[in-house]
Amino acid sequence: MGDKKGLLLDTTLCIGCGACYEACKERNQLPRTATHFLEDRLSDQTYTVVKRRGGRFVRQLCMHCEVPTCVSVCPVGALEKTAMGPVIYHEARCIGCRYCMLACPFGIPKYEWRKILPRVRKCDLCADRLAAGRPTACAEVCPTGATRFGDRQALIEEARARIRAHPQKYVPRIYGLEEVGGTSVLLLSDVPFERLGYRTDLLSEPLPLLTWQVLQKIPNFVVVGSVLLGGIWWITNRRREVQLRERQQRELREPSAPESADSWHEEP
């Protein structure tokens, strides 16, 4: 049970039947948002779509990153990567800053713009079904095996086996194995991934490392900075005191007209 689950999307097998789209709507009780599912796009009421891209049908949904950018950027921990793989949303925590939407490299989180008290909406990899030992809704209904559910590691083996078996067919790459540190949703394709609308220029390191490199220096910065500034103040203040003392002594020796004191210099 503790194993990480995932999905393997094989675009060569997808026939664009829309079963995954409808099953997702059904499971999440979402209203109809387009006249035909192929015309639809991801929104606060649509968590997965099937697109015509590069001469293939290809799905879009949350990739459920291994080290999710959205989870790292959320200031209040409203997004969470669970042990089984899904990235889930705790709406009671969310303050609505939408940093997750800005930061997601796949552009997945969507917002309920029309609502007074909006929530972030996205695929949750059917976390409740997974917990009950069932596959995701989309995988359950897929009639061709284009969407396969399983243990992530097993799916990776499966994908490798398929590429080995048909090296002339597949692009020799599993999308999601390394992208931004790996994702729970993996893709196989026989056309280049960028033609499917999937970015191939993503870093192979998790994006949260980019900000963590800076953030982890903060405690050190605070301590060193405070001590440094305090030290500078100590020195400059001492110098001022000495100057004042010297001036007083000079004035004692040779009394002259006192300098005009500015009352305003007294404030903190």
Binding site: C74, P75, R93, C94, P118, T211, L215
Partner: peptide, 26 residues
Amino acid sequence: FDLGRPYRIWHPLVMWNPHSVMFEVA
């Protein structure tokens, strides 16, 4: 004005995520 749920602006006080730059900003 900008936060979707402005009345929860205090959440970062009690709900921590030190990995978030936004948390530091807050």
